[in-house]
Design a binder for these strands. Sequence first.
DNA 1: AAAAACATCAACCGCGCAATT
DNA 2: AAATTGCGCGGTTGATGTTTT
Length: 285
Amino acid sequence: MERSLSENGSSGTYGSSEEEMSITKGPWTEEEDSVLFDYITVHGEGHWNSVARYTGMQTFILRWLNYLRPNVRRGNITLQEQLMILDLHSRWGNRYYTSSSSLSSLVFILEHAEHLPGRTDNEIKNYWRTRVVKQAKQLKCDVNSKQFRDTLRFVWMPRMLERIQAQASSSGQAQTALMSNVQAHSDPCGGATATATASASDAGFLSEASSAADVHAQSLSDSGASYSLMGGGSWCSHGAEEGYGRVWEERNNGYSEIAGSGFGGVDMWTEENICFLQQQLADDL
DNA sequence: AAAAACATCAACCGCGCAATT
DNA sequence: AAATTGCGCGGTTGATGTTTT
């Protein structure tokens, strides 16, 4: 194999043009993974700093971060994680190169949420692109449009929350956490707060969510108020980053309890749900 | 049962900002 | 102040797996 790591200073052997000519591409073999794993075990992750400057080292780093690193989780993104992704993305988007607003920051947050460790940027990105962006295209809607974002925030996310709650009910898990988190509450910032009605039947929920979406999408999005996902301590956002650390800490308690309950892997992008989304988008026009 | 179409995800690429010289 | 280098990011590709015809 041509991928190699060596001890001496210019260790990333991808560095020289000669060697780059013979770089192996494509899927990693078990043997390669094993070599890389051993290397990190011996040298530690900190060693990246001294070798990462060499072209191609990025390949090793990515393999480690996205695959080999302990606690990395792959596949089967839970509803809770999907909800988090949508929530955070609605707040921060996927803007470039700022320390507080990128997908990597999102990963950072996921990793520091006690019960949602190990999701990688690649995975989140893939979810966003293969699911969300794809559905937006199917709906003939610009994923970055205000209309789509509002629909996600005020219709889709409450619907996901509803599903999570339904799962919790059926499994008898996390009921307390959800019931305390998913309920109407006043917004101390003075604005209205969109809420999912946890006890609604599906049909009932649809109409309630619809009207809620209509009202809130109109009345809230311009003012900067946000749909409140988890509201142990209710919160509002006037500008994306303001007070986020504190808010996250409070909200994360809710996430953690629910995420810890262990259900997930539910596909929200069913025909029924997409039709529903389509209806919402049509109504907004 | 086989082929085609589609979906997913790991891996790689290249751009542009930030830091350094 | 300008040029260079490094780094982090989102975008894209291609392999693989799954579903549909």
